[in-house]
């Protein structure tokens, strides 16, 4: 369902303490569509759009950023996070276009979105944004419900190679990094990736419900999305996608390479701003993100969430995203998705 809050917040000013007056002034500026050149950033509430449902990886990244920026007083304005579901991020990306030129309109992005845009044959791409930074990378986790007959990742892959219709995979939006890593894995194991049944969910909560109810047999998503369920004993972690081991619930999780598959895959997440920003505006936003990256609170959050620090900003980020888009396109063609 659609998030009603986006537009609501657009018309909301920070009520906290002495900010009222400043916010009211900022409110006047709003109608002019963001700050003009030379204006300090931020001059208004920063709005981070999560182009997916609540409870997913983008959502928790954005909310962590919000928390750190506000708790550490990195900016004078407040930071709001809102969700726009749909199309693996395509809906949010389309909506971001409406805020062209406004440096306060930010959006989470990542590998997931590249794949989804590729799959949807979308008219807008990440070229229609102003890249700000790449922030984190995260291992993908393969999980099954606790009562599943699959005990190891090898069980899953063997079953799949024998009969692709015997296993249904499920995770984030179709075409996203979750499907990509599953496809890469079966391809590597000698299976036919184009036969794969994959069910995409637009939000971590829904995917968890789908895995636990038995709609899908094997869940694939960022490891942080399943941590609670693994800890609670409701899900079993079969493997993580990175070559570097990851610690989950006090234990070292098996990697795909441990299981004998030569896959090293990490899902990265970053943040972009609305298109049409001047270089000066972009650098102002980058500066805030840079400051955020330097805080201890952010480092702690990375550790807590099992995210790997993967920091690039500005031009470097722009180049990285472009390369990744190109790479994703290639993989898609190879896999015949």
């Amino acid at each position: 369902m659609r998030a009603s809050r986006h537009s609501a917040l657009r018309r909301t000013t920070a009520a906290a303490g002495g900010l009222v007056l400043a916010a009211a002034v900022a409110g006047c500026n709003q109608t002019t569509g963001g700050g003009a050149a030379g204006q300090a950033f931020p001059s208004d509430t920063i709005e981070i759009m999560v182009p997916a449902g609540a409870g997913g990886g983008w959502d928790s990244t954005a909310r962590t950023m919000q928390e750190v920026v506000q708790n550490e007083d990195l900016v004078d304005e407040s930071v709001e996070v809102f969700n726009v579901e749909g199309g693996g991020g395509a809906t949010g990306l389309a909506q971001l276009q409406e805020d062209s030129g406004n440096p306060h309109a930010l959006m989470m992005t990542g590998l997931v979105m590249l794949g989804a845009l590729e799959l949807a044959d979308s008219e807008v791409s990440l070229d229609n944004t102003t890249p700000i930074a790449v922030l984190t990378s995260e291992a993908e986790a393969f999980v099954v419900p606790a009562k599943s007959p699959f005990k190891t990742i090898n069980d899953v892959i063997d079953a799949y190679v024998k009969d692709p219709s015997s296993v249904t995979f499920g995770g984030g939006s179709a075409g996203g990094s979750d499907q990509l890593v599953a496809a890469e894995l079966v391809q590597e194991a000698g299976g036919d990736a184009s036969e794969m049944e994959y069910i995409g969910y637009s939000g971590g909560g829904e995917a968890i419900a789908g895995i636990l109810s038995g709609d899908v047999e094997v869940g694939v998503s960022g490891i942080s999305e399943f941590t609670e369920q693994i800890k609670g004993g409701k899900m079993r972690l079969l493997a993580v996608s990175t070559a570097d081991p990851v610690e989950v619930n006090g234990e070292q999780a098996p990697t795909l390479q441990d299981a004998g598959y030569d896959v090293d895959f990490a899902n990265w997440r970053g943040i972009v701003a609305a298109p049409g920003l001047s270089d000066e505006q972009r650098d102002q936003v980058v500066e805030v993100i840079d400051e955020l990256h330097g805080t201890d609170a952010w480092k702690q959050a990375l550790a807590d969430n099992n995210w790997t620090d993967f920091f690039k900003t500005g031009d470097e980020a722009e180049k990285f995203i472009k390369d990744e888009a190109e790479k994703t396109k290639q993989i898609y063609e190879e896999l015949g998705l």
Partner: peptide
């Protein structure tokens, strides 16, 4: 709404 609840309403021509 603007002062207590923090919901933005346009002041318009009034100097508020």
């Amino acid at each position: 709404f603007t002062r207590l609840l923090g919901v933005y309403l346009p002041p318009g021509v009034l100097p508020l």
